[in-house]
Amino acid sequence: MTDLLKISGLHASIDADGKPKEILRGVDLVIPPGEVHAIMGPNGCGKSTLSYVLAGREEYDVTSGSVTFMGRDLLDMEPEERAAAGLFLAFQSPVELPGVNNANFLRTAVNAVRRARGEAELDAVGFLKAVRAATKNLSMSDDMLKRSVNVGFSGGEKKRNEVLQMTMLQPTLAILDETDSGLDVDALRIVAEGVKNLRSPKFSALVITHHQRLLDYLGPDRIHVMARGRIVRSGGPELAKQIDAEGYASFLAEAA
């Protein structure tokens, strides 16, 4: 079977006071269909940058390397095309959109993606049914749909709202950028269950995290350790336990 996502020799930099600062320094990563992979690594190693580059954020400059997603050149696509193709990024810090009603936003997004995928748009009733089912699974109140997107949401509510969007947009690859950070035990369980519900041969996830706990819920297929802008080690779930026990020091030494 072909790879869902294949990242080869990816270099990317960002403009820092007029000078390019290289953050990704040759990332190689392959995610096959149906697998959950985790990226762990110390702060500043480039995990979030990788997720932004994959989602298509413009301020990062890809200087070399390639990314193919379902056989297509991902780097050549607009952010909205990537979403339509099945890529979803759950933001580490979800953006607030004052004045944008959460339900309208969700319906606009779902129908934009469905249109692009050649599927029929959901009418108001169909959408409501789907969104009610999803919010119930995530223990979200109807009130959160009536409010402006993420405005006045607690940290946990914002993360749940990300998982809600993910559920509704039905991605083939979800990148979860520290979706577990700032969550209490109950919220973590709800969010993890939300992701777990999506697991299928047609769904893969790249989970960026610092914590073993989310991985315990999800049961990742592979763990990658990132340091100084590269993947320095890949292995099975046991790697996460080693990091939990020993920290990143030995991996950093390898990367140096």
Partner: peptide, 12 residues
């Protein structure tokens, strides 16, 4: 905000 909306599939 624009990027957030576009990352959800909403065209520019």
């Amino acid at each position: 905000q624009l990027f957030y909306l576009r990352s959800r599939g909403i065209p520019d």
